[in-house]
Design a protein around this nucleic acid. Structure first.
Length: 271
DNA sequence: AGTGCGGCCTGTCCGC
DNA sequence: TGCGGACAGGCCGCAC
């Protein structure tokens, strides 16, 4: 499940390979993703030079002279650079073939992802315009969160996963960050103190940075010709570890549904 | 405006 | 062993 660190890792992996390359051809095998892949995408991209690739939240944005290709990996999406083209498998929905015969292959079993074309002014695009702050920026602080949280009754976990507040923090990293900060995920966002939010913002950065660092070690996988990605070796503290002992105090970790999301926490370490 | 929930989709796991 | 159902997940878009 690609979250911000995984998307950042993909970005760092593919950017040096694809930048300044020209699109020769597009193959769309399955246009039905979260929204349809634009029917005219091939005509938009043909013979266009890829100027840059950047990230906003979990969206990857491919800058061309005539517009921006937006790619979201949803839950199960992957992007692979294939130096040697190989036959497409069941969920390989799109290939972009660049000069030098480099294939960028989009794979997504659950089709929760998206591939869209933005003609101009991407900042105003409805998917991007209302995104919150990037959590790795200096300006993402406890004070920022605390101010946004005033009067909010939703749980801090739901609040933290709200992309309109802060982008890129999904279930895994919300769970891990709240554990790191020692904050109970059910706490109403508006009730936490500024010092709690200072701890939380720090914890988010620490957890995300660590994951990106780890991701760096898997970068080579994006260059493998067979397209296998290899698993992201994250050191998860408590996500998915309900009923196991807390890594800090050995209390049995509890699980709860918060905002329709499974949530693991330590009832002793998190208050 | 803020909140809660349904829906999209398929692989994996569990119980019968 | 085979099968059905629950579940997981990001995030939009709707209803209240």
């Amino acid at each position: 499940m690609p979250e911000l660190p995984e998307v950042e890792t993909v970005l760092r992996g593919i950017r040096p390979i694809l930048i300044k390359k020209t699109v020769e051809k597009i193959i769309v095998r399955q246009p039905k993703l979260r929204w349809p892949i634009p029917a005219k995408l091939a005509s938009y991209l043909k013979q266009q030079v890829l100027r840059d690739i950047f990230r906003r939240g979990k969206y990857l944005l491919f800058q061309f002279d005539t517009g921006i290709l937006l790619i979201h990996l949803g839950m199960s999406g992957r992007l692979c650079v294939l130096a040697q083209p190989c036959s497409a498998k069941k969920h390989d929905h799109m290939d972009i073939i660049f000069s030098n015969n480099i294939h960028l292959r989009y794979t997504d079993p659950r089709k929760f992802g998206a591939i869209l074309w933005i003609k101009n002014n991407w900042q105003a695009h409805p998917l991007l315009a209302h995104l919150g702050i990037e959590p790795l920026l200096k300006s993402f602080t406890g004070k920022y969160l605390w101010e946004k949280a005033q009067g909010r009754k939703v749980s801090i976990k739901t609040f933290l996963m709200n992309a309109h507040i802060v982008t890129g923090i999904g279930n895994i990293y919300a769970t891990e960050s709240l554990f790191e900060a020692g904050i109970l995920p059910q706490t109403p966002a508006g009730k936490l103190s500024l010092s709690n939010y200072n701890k939380l913002a720090k914890a988010c950065k620490k957890v995300l940075r660590k994951a990106i660092l780890k991701g760096g070690t898997t970068l080579k996988d994006y260059r493998q010709s067979d397209g296998t990605q290899g698993h992201f070796h994250l050191d998860i503290q408590i996500y998915g570890k309900a009923k196991q002992p807390c890594p800090r105090c050995k209390t049995i970790l509890k699980t709860d549904r918060i905002g329709q999301r499974s949530s693991v926490y330590c009832p002793k370490c998190q208050r």
